[in-house]
Design a protein around this nucleic acid. Structure first.
Lengths: 193, 193
DNA sequence: GTCTATATAGAGATAGAC
DNA sequence: GTCTATCTCTATATAGAC
């Protein structure tokens, strides 16, 4: 067991690989990052990666699972609430305020590698797919603009992280995402919940 | 001169290549699309592409130039206006309402290939870089949250197009982007212009 | 302008020693 | 668990005929 020192102290090799892959995928894209790049980052050769993962796509799949699970949990929570005015805003703020550095990084990853993700992890692990359930709880199918508004509310953190400058910190992004949620769920506009 | 029929009637070979590349890059990503893929789409072999473009990256560069030019024009327009209340909203709506199918497709392209774009077209042709000038006109450097708010206002069309479902049409996306601009530039929040 | 054929490089992945 | 060595495939790009 190769215990590491530095920022990754206490991490298993597998975790170190995932962390390095996440960072490289975000910067250079999925196809722009080779197995050798990832291996070099954690001080291994590319062959060693195949002991921990069956292939490159399974590294991507492992990375995209976490946030999808969080989204599903949020959807279950919302479903368990009884319908009431302001529930949309409440649910969205729950998502925004619970944002962590990891989720921010996961968000950026998802944006950087969207086509590769669609190719390698067909649908169930994708973020747009994850929002589907939530959106369905708060709007009907017949008003596309309102439907898109709801999608924007839940995607507020993603929009803010995409529009942010590289040196904006997490708190700034959360604050801007809150602004966005509040602005888009003014009592007047919030017709369906 | 190989005049074509069908949807690309009247287009030069060069234009047909660009159109095919844009579509494929958006769907499969930059690295996920080979020169052979593009060539096949327009009924050529990959070698023929090198008569029209010096290399794959120059196809990408040509694709990303158009929208950057539009953004620069908008920035010049805003700069020529005298400062007045509501100018931010006015400028952003100008951008949103002028959206065309082409710009929507360009937006989707930019989102699909962000890392490849950063790699191949260093900075000046990138969209985030294009917003920089505009953002500077409407906010100071010392309030990061307000700065990000302004960025979101100008990125409203991009956010809406990203959050949209694949079958949402242009009008739906424009309408949602307008909602976003209006919500984020309420007279109360619009402190700097 | 477009073709066929090919040079060259790099990718993901596997075999087998240690 | 990790290494070295290598297989195989596919990519971009070029050379030269037509």
């Amino acid at each position: 067991m190769p215990k590491r020192s530095g920022p990754n102290a206490g991490a298993t090799t597998r975790e170190a690989v995932l962390e390095a892959a996440r960072r490289l995928f975000t910067q250079r894209g999925y196809d722009g990052t080779s197995m050798r790049d990832i291996a070099g980052e954690v001080g291994l050769t590319n062959a060693a990666l195949y002991y921990h993962f069956p292939g490159k796509d399974s590294i991507l799949a492992a990375l995209s699972r976490t946030r999808r699970d969080e989204l599903d949990a949020l959807a279950r929570w919302a479903q368990a609430q009884e319908s009431r005015p302001g529930l949309l805003r409440e649910t969205a703020l729950r998502w925004v305020d619970g944002a962590t550095r990891e989720r921010l990084e996961g968000m950026r990853l998802a944006q950087a590698i969207l086509p590769a993700l669609a190719r390698a992890v067909p649908d169930e692990a994708s973020v747009p797919g994850g929002f589907e359930t939530l959106v369905g709880l708060f709007t009907d199918a017949d008003d596309p603009v309102d439907r898109l508004r709801i999608r924007l509310v839940f995607d507020a953190f993603g929009c803010a992280s995409q529009a942010a400058e590289p040196d904006d910190d997490l708190d700034t992004i959360i604050a801007a995402a809150r602004l966005l949620v509040l602005a888009l769920t003014e009592p007047g506009a919030d017709r369906t919940s």
